[in-house]
């Protein structure tokens, strides 16, 4: 048993070391040494928590490319790491036991765009298979970025899913709402109009066959 534990520890340490080397290599020559050290530390911690590391590296590269002072880049990377952790927690609370990297990144994007952790949780809860929480959250973040208030973002995405429309139609929501905005509606009016139109639309006859269940009626997906 002791040998197994030592083996596991060694393998995990080797994996962590390889990840650190990868992060360091990607930052080499692009960011100051202190930024690199801080990002490696943040990435190691994020990796240990099961969070994606790539967004942290990207944020550091972005800051350096934009000529942002090192201490501000480090602060932005640490803020992003915290946001990824918040997104992962909200997804977990929404019933996604092991959220994918893409879902966590999409959740962090939705938070950055102005959604609350509770709203991220609600969208995760409604995005049961065959719907992908990553797509729902990516769409939600985009809608928030174009000015749709968070509550209406949740309403329009949830209504679309609960009406049984396809995932492609969920992904097309920003385009539909922007078209309404181009005709003079405010983001809130456009989202409300889209929600009403979806709610009154007859349910499609074909797939998806597994109809989503409202969060309140649905048991937790945790094992």
């Amino acid at each position: 048993m002791k040998i197994t534990a030592i083996g596991v520890t060694l393998v995990l340490a080797a994996g962590g070391l390889a990840a650190q080397q990868d992060v360091r290599a990607r930052l080499e020559g692009r960011v100051p040494a202190e930024v690199s050290a801080a990002v490696v530390a943040a990435a190691t911690q994020a990796g240990a928590q099961g969070l994606p590391v790539d967004p942290l590296v990207q944020k550091a590269l972005e800051g350096a490319a934009k000529g942002v002072p090192a201490e501000r880049v480090i602060a932005a990377v640490q803020e992003l790491a915290a946001r990824l952790a918040t997104a992962a927690g909200a997804l977990h609370d929404g019933g996604v036991a092991t959220p994918s990297s893409m879902a966590i990144e999409a959740g962090a994007f939705a938070l950055t765009a102005g959604m609350s952790p509770q709203q991220v949780r609600d969208l995760a809860a409604v995005s049961v298979p065959p719907y992908d929480p990553a797509t729902s959250l990516r769409v939600a973040g985009t809608l928030a970025a174009i000015g749709v208030p968070g509550k209406q973002v949740v309403d329009v995405v949830s209504t679309t899913i609960q009406a049984g429309l396809s995932q492609a139609e969920v992904a097309a929501l920003p385009g539909s709402i922007q078209t309404r905005m181009a005709r003079g509606a405010t983001p809130a009016q456009a989202a409300a109009g889209q929600t009403r139109a979806t709610a009154t639309r007859p349910a499609p006859a074909g797939p998806p066959t597994e109809r989503p269940v409202r969060p309140a009626d649905r048991p937790a997906r945790r094992p």
Binding site: E62, A76, T112, A113, V139, G141, T142, A145, A171
Partner: peptide, 16 residues
């Protein structure tokens, strides 16, 4: 394109 705060006091555009 829609934009979000980039964490450095500016805006990034978003493609989803």
């Amino acid at each position: 394109a829609p934009g979000v705060d980039d964490g450095f006091g500016r805006r990034n555009s978003v493609l989803a």
